[in-house]
Write a protein that binds this DNA or RNA. Structure first.
Lengths: 212, 212
DNA sequence: TAGCACTCATTGTTCAACAAACATAGACGG
DNA sequence: CCGTCTATGTTTGTTGAACAATGAGTGCTA
């Protein structure tokens, strides 16, 4: 684990950075050599990533980068609705981590001005992780973070990083503002509608890309 | 993985059956010999179980059966509140899987009559998994199932299987009935109160057992 | 008794090997 | 021409042995 958790992190970074494309086959011997670890150590990391949903493992056929289908996208948005909305709705007013949401919005705006869409995507993920952090639940945050990472693979799959995220920066901002001014319940309502729109947009991109 | 997923299952079975006690150290060589697999294969299984929260891994100190602290119990109940209540509240009326809930209640009643408390616990887990299955979300069900398994370890830790589950069979039944008659929203409310009581009871058991 | 060095056991990791499953290409027959 | 079957090569699944690195326990010393 000394190296192992570091290996998992290195693999995760390359996955969500899009260097390993969704659906791409991950050869054990090739990757082991590339990361300068043994096959056995790499396989341990694969099990972790598989459990997190970032990687798909089929017995005797090896692992490949997860390539979410439309069904997966729908499933992921179901999780988002339940988790994000419930957490936000029941969050106390003035939760300390609200500043995390605001910081994420600012970061997204900054990167958007630079047209650095990959970092905009990262800031967007951070925003929604911040929302879930209002639950003060380590497990909820962990599971949710995995699901969001999987969703990023969905974005990478249909290659629409840029215009897909840009319109939603403002809506993130709106959610925080409503949370501040009108409270959690109103903010949760806004967020629910937001997620619905987001889901439609991703599914639209899938349809255009002709993906399943 | 051919053997591996089977190995994970075998380990999981023994964990939630209480044959491996919470906090118990799991020696690699000993367990490998016991399950007749190599150390490397066992370590792969350990990574999966670690990611599921059933096992705790500390670098250079090996893995041990998860031994949830009171903080963990609180965290787990936070997840339960958010997930179970949100799913039930937004479930459609007459969801097909409602029969799963009813079947779980019947099973629990049957085992309770036999005073088979371990199976009562299993039926109780099945009930709550059934609730979450109303979300039609594979990921939500999977994550939630892991959390419930971890909670079972908490029960095992303080050794109060019997009287802890018995009183709640009736409340499971009540939740289904309200769901049938008054609908999801009313049922979710009942369930929320139920979970609050359940949490208090578990934390009480922890306090009595003098556990952290 | 507190600190310290030493020893021993366990984990972390690698390597080489082999069986088993799979994928591919070419031969064969309809 | 097309589908099926077989042979071959590749990849994964799994093992056992080996060694380094870390941690835990022990007994010594002051």
């Amino acid at each position: 684990m000394n190296h192992d958790s570091s290996l998992v992190n290195r693999l995760t970074d390359r996955l969500i950075a899009g260097e390993l494309r969704p659906g791409e086959r991950l050869s054990e011997t090739a990757l082991a050599k590339e990361f300068d670890v043994s096959r056995n150590t790499l396989r341990e990391a694969f099990r972790v990533l598989g459990e997190q949903g970032l990687v798909t493992h089929i017995p005797h056929r090896g692992v490949s980068v997860a390539s979410p289908s439309t069904a997966d996208v729908v499933d992921i948005y179901r999780v988002r609705h339940h988790v994000e909305c419930s957490v936000l709705e029941h969050a106390p007013r003035n939760h300390p981590n609200a500043v995390r949401m605001e910081a994420a919005v600012e970061a997204a705006e900054k990167f958007a001005a630079e047209e650095n869409w990959l970092e905009v995507g990262t800031a967007n993920m951070e925003f929604h992780n911040a929302v879930v952090s209002l639950s003060d639940s380590r497990r909820l945050m962990q599971s949710f973070s995995n699901v969001l990472a999987e969703l990023r693979l969905a974005f990478l799959k249909v290659e629409v990083l840029d215009f897909l995220h840009a319109p939603f920066i403002g809506r993130n901002k709106e959610v925080v503002e409503i949370y501040r001014t009108e409270g959690p319940v109103a903010a949760a309502k806004i967020l629910g509608a937001y997620l619905g729109d987001s889901e439609r947009q991703v599914l639209g991109a899938y349809a255009r890309a002709g993906q399943d």
